[in-house]
Write a protein that binds this DNA or RNA. Structure first.
Lengths: 233, 233
DNA sequence: AAGAGTCAGCTGCTCTAACCAACTGAGCTA
DNA sequence: TAGCTCAGTTGGTTAGAGCAGCTGACTCTT
């Protein structure tokens, strides 16, 4: 039993969370209505709503106006928002928050590539081939679309069969991309980007762990260099 | 301008976030009181409070009863809670959520160790030595305290000079530890754990990248094996 | 009988107004 | 001067009223 000194709202949140865990409610399952919760927990409607707002912010519950309250997907969405806000706020204060975010991505992807090398399903390899080709076509026309880069990294990690890891990586990518487009202009050379993605793909295809790690480091190192110099306004 | 169709509370949250970013408010800076926000934004106190509850859940604001509302530390605290809840809920539904969490930690720490090898400040090395010794003393008496393990991993990554990374790793550690102690019993051999920590330390001290990576993988691999077999009730 | 429109009723959303509880700091007391 | 008290400020909680979105059954039309 926690949250005894931290206010009623926290207490209610804990009780609702317990309700979900104890009853093994899956994502999408309906929760009691506000009125029911109010009677069930013996608190006012307002307190119930404030508690739900907190849970909603963490994607633990999902509230649909005029319909009901449901167990949320518990995705990493809120973390993205939190990361973005933290990074933006830090950036404006002169911190190197965007660089820190990039280093985080680099650490995870570097740590994973060894496990991926030589173990990617054929289907995913085919998709990655198509993505690199699309990337090269887009590069020839000027710039690589953000979607394509995101899809490449997502497809790369699909073979891990680890939903948490995939979501986390996509969250980091999203946060980085949003802040990057809002705040700084990186001027990466699209052709270099393509070459680096192809290198990563070939390395994991052949199962060459060392080469794969080097390729990933190279890719991120490229962005990191661009990030270090020309971004202070 | 976003959040026009997602309710008043979201709208208010966006406006408060903008207030923080636009005015470059650092963590700990005071925000307007509820009454002031209510007048400033032209909404009822109730709506202001619901919006603040959401921001509080993400550590973007910090509310102190009878004192005021302040810019929050924007730490990873909420993410820990979210991760824990997600992992616990997933575990009870029969998913391998705890294993996924461990793999996430493994990925990050493995990806970082190469950057650390040979570059750890002498002061941190001294502290790590002391921690391993403490760990060995505790192992001799039965079991290694969780604090000690946490402190080792924290000290290891201090040299990175990346607050986001450090906080994220500690968040992962905390979430894993909380779920592990609540849900499963791993029965790791304390002496083996000690040996693995010492191996990691020696590898980074000598700057041997390959050995360091192997040591980290070995350490996590050990826990991973214990996790795979005997945990379904 | 089949389709479209309407409406009652659920649901969550917002507001107002009052009072409770925690903390601070000025002023009083010893 | 040290400590206490208390008024004022801030957030916490409750209550009740009315608004707004969604669903599904009912009705009217074809």
């Amino acid at each position: 039993m926690a949250a005894h000194n931290r206010g009623l709202a926290s207490d209610i949140q804990e009780r609702i969370k317990r309700l979900i865990v104890d009853q093994r409610l899956p994502s999408g399952a309906p929760l009691p209505t506000e009125t029911e919760l109010m009677e069930l927990l013996g608190v006012s409607r307002n307190s119930v709503r404030e508690a739900l707002k907190g849970l909603q912010a963490m994607n633990i519950v999902e509230i649909r106006h005029g319909f009901g309250t449901y167990v949320g997907p518990m995705s990493m969405g809120p973390m993205i928002e939190g990361l973005i806000f933290r990074t933006v706020a830090g950036h404006y204060r002169g911190e190197d928050s965007l660089l820190q975010l990039l280093e985080l991505r680099e650490a995870v992807e570097t740590g994973l590539i060894a496990r991926l090398a030589g173990r990617i399903p054929q289907a995913d390899l085919t998709e990655l081939d198509a993505l690199v080709e699309r990337m090269e076509a887009e590069a020839a026309e000027g710039a690589v679309r953000a979607d394509t880069d995101r899809a490449f990294h997502a497809a790369l990690h699909r073979g891990l069969d680890n939903l948490l890891l995939s979501e986390m990586l996509e969250a980091f990518w999203d946060a980085f991309h949003r802040v990057r487009t809002d705040l700084v202009d990186l001027h990466t050379d699209p052709k270099v980007t393509c070459r680096q993605h192809r290198e990563i793909l070939e390395a994991v295809r052949t199962g060459d762990v060392v080469r794969a790690e080097a390729a990933v480091r190279d890719h991120f190192g490229n962005i990191r260099e661009r990030l270090r110099s020309p971004h202070q306004e």
